[in-house]
Design a protein around this nucleic acid. Sequence first.
RNA 1: CCGGAUGUGGUGAAAUUGGUAGACACGUCAGACUUAGGAUCUGAUGCCGUAAGGUGUGGGGGUUCGAGUCCCUCCAUCCGGACCA
Length: 952
Amino acid sequence: MEYNFRDIEKKWQDWWKENKIYKVSKDSSKPKYYALDMFPYPSGVGLHVGHPLGYIASDIFSRYKRLKGYNVLHPMGYDAFGLPAEQYAIDHGIHPAISTEANIKNFRNQLDKIGFSFDWDREVNTSKPDFYKWTQWIFLELFDSWYNRQTQKAERIKQLIQLFEEYGSDVPGVKPYAFSFTNSGWKSFDKKKRQEILMEYRLAYCGIGEVNWCEALGTVLANDEVINGVSERGGFPVVKKKLRQWYLRITEYADRLLEGLQKVDFSDSMKEMQGNWIGKSSGAEIDFRVRIDESVKETKETSSSDPSIEVVHVTITETEADESLRVYTTRPDTIFGVDFMVIAPEHELIDVITNPQHKKSVEEYITYVKSRSERERMAEKKITGVFTGAYALNPFNGRAIPIWISEYVLAGYGTGAIMAVPCGDQRDFLFAKHFNIPITNIIGSHFSGEEANPTKEAILQNSDFINGMVMKDAIDVVIKRIEEMGMGARKVNYKMRDAAFSRQRYWGEPFPIVWKNGIAYPLDEKDLPLELPHVDSYKPGPEGEGPLANIPEWTSRHLETNTMPGYAGSSWYFLRYMDPHNDKEFCNRKASDYWGQVDLYIGGTEHAVGHLLYSRMWTKVLHDLGYIGHDEPYKRLVNQGMIQGSSRFVYRVRGTNKFVSFGLKDNYQTDRIHVDVNIVDGVELDTELFKQWRNGDYMDAEFILENGKYICGTEVEKMSKRYFNTVNPDDLCIKYGADTFRMYEMFLGPVEMSKPWDTKGIEGVHRFLKKLWRLFYDDSPLSDKKGPGTKLWTDEKANEAELKVLHKAIRKIEEDTERFSFNTGVSAFMIAVNDLTDLKTHKKEVLEKLLILLAPYAPHISEELWHQLGNSDSILNAEYPTLEAKYLIESSKEYPISINGKLRTTITIPLGAPESEVEQIVLANEVIQKWLEGKPPKKIIYKEGKMVNVVV
RNA sequence: CCGGAUGUGGUGAAAUUGGUAGACACGUCAGACUUAGGAUCUGAUGCCGUAAGGUGUGGGGGUUCGAGUCCCUCCAUCCGGACCA
């Protein structure tokens, strides 16, 4: 009897479905386990072999946990709102709801073939009104909340109003408003003013933000749709445009998001990434008075020591300062090393302080900067900037410091202005060198003059009252002095900014907000969901608003025309799986208390900062408001690596129809063309399939072969349709079966690691499953003719050698599964099957347990053989075998013996032998004697159970 | 530029705690069986060398009896950087 995987897999997939083997419900008799995958965006091109990697890992772990006695929640759904569907609608006129539905069907089909243990009764779809009703509802909760800095919790807006009514704006816990007001002040404000103030506190709030606006396309573009200041499509100019935007006040949660990292099991690199993104830094804000009047006089001369340096002498007639410039610095200790100030090109003081003589150059510079994205500004090495003609005064010694504008200072961080210390900061240093600004050295020999030195250990010089102090100690001294003088304050800053929460697009959740007289009113809960209306055109509105602005029925109700971003639904979907059909609540508290945190979350690192931070914030808010009992959504996070494509190329001789093999291509002038990896075997092109490829575009191709073969060139690239390097899991499931496919994906390497896909090795895994099958059945062509006696298994008692193989496998596979080392787990199965084959073991006692071990990895074949052995229940309800260490005890070990750390021989020595005896055995050894050359050893290092090293 | 990761045979990789580098596979080579083999089985396989032996984990340096593993430094590749998801 042969291993007929096609019939077996179909049979059991149907059986599992019929018997609802994967249906899960609350069960307090077992401990719960929640294993979750990051749900996919159902794109039009379907799954490629990279997608299921994480799903297979979590599926193995879910089945493993179930066998170990847990009640396992393992759901799947679709993150179905998003730009690609909308773009597809624009290009093909097909409504996103329809294309999305079709894509989901296709995804589901593909997923089903791989044999996952998802409980599909719990499927979620973020674009369905019954789901996004609750996304909108949570948005309203955010809208109706503010962050109390004293209790460090989200609280209701009505509590804030109470505080304002009772005490005015200056209350502990309430972040300072732009100006302070008293309780009677609050009462004197009109409704609009009050709402304006409250908007500054809401966790979901409306403000003015900049977007990439492309006039020619009449639309707002994503950052990565903008390249070098022009649109990716069409190359039209893109400018910054101010638009009304929604934001999440995630910055208020910065500290809690940072602290929360300590109580979750994420990789260190993941925690580091999130930490860096939050970017907490402490320092001070310092006010510099600014001089812009006629009293400033500049005279220039060349430095006596270095003729390339131009020294500018500034004389200032003492008058009152006109303005003050606030900077943020983490290094107040370097205040006497400040040689210039730099403000962001968007800084509001620019118009005020720019000296008329410099006005033209400043305007030109700002126009140039406007055309560039923030990303480009951060990325480019080019040093640019312009002098404003204004000077700031050092608060301690009154020194006049020129104020420059440069794009390397970002408006969104700190105060959008910095004090530049060229001897200590490399960017400042390069800027000073580029514009010939003289550099003050406050760190003596620590500064080479060649590059900046950001040390905190140097002893300060040229620094007035902090001379002679170590820099890190001077930080507090300076801050205290500044606070005493009323020139600034200690300040903690975060790189993280509030998250933009609106998009000028169609295919997203509508905001349940109505605008009246410039005031945002939430819709009533009973009016939810606010359903996305049908549109005929996906063109943006007249002022760059979303397409909803073109619908009269929408605008006449004064509904918000923006929609929510892609990450809205994904910020809370893991809660919906717990109670997916509830139409009264987003998730019943009893359900969320039972399932609690996601015990295992698997997904790509690309979500390291976006999705993971947003969903952590939403969880914290829902926790603060009392809707759920935990405030971190994910207990353990595992990041799967990206599977890259391995592209194949053919080389066409220019101007001909001839294709030359890789090794000979240098003899010709050729063009490199991507060729479908699926018509290439390893690197050898199937020339016949190539001729039929792309509907016969290459029908008349001729080939220049090497050794009778056409060899392709290769390169690792992103897996993508356009590189023809995508491999479809369906094809592999048909050819080798789902079990082979699952195990091969795992066998490829560690789950966390990125690696290029190569189908070549899949045969090895398939052979392993066939070999396993042969432990149960004789599959030789003769056996079937001999009658039904092809089964091989027996009820004989297993011997010690066989039990040793089994228990070695139990130990190794359990260990590897627990630590997510599935690749070595698969190899442990191979070793076990190889060993059992060598021992000619066909004993049920051993094989049955091996099947249970294998069930998480290869569920179909395990279920089939399990039933063949006479069991009638699913193998998933079997009991996981327990390790019996007694079968693994060894009495001796083959020790590696090295001389000076170099391995020279191995000797088998009984375990537990005393050190003196081991030394004797080692020194008596022939090989060792030869290497000792009669000399006595200096030292012998013996590590029991490990090795022996003889030092000569 | 900033942040994160990775680098080991012809290939994917293993080495969990500083202790026999290359497990397990793919591929290749040789052989067996067979009408046949793209099935199966056996053996070999890091590199140099007939061998003894030498050498070997991106490059350079260090710590150690001992380094793929720890430290410093340089190089290369991949991922992310807020409206792609």
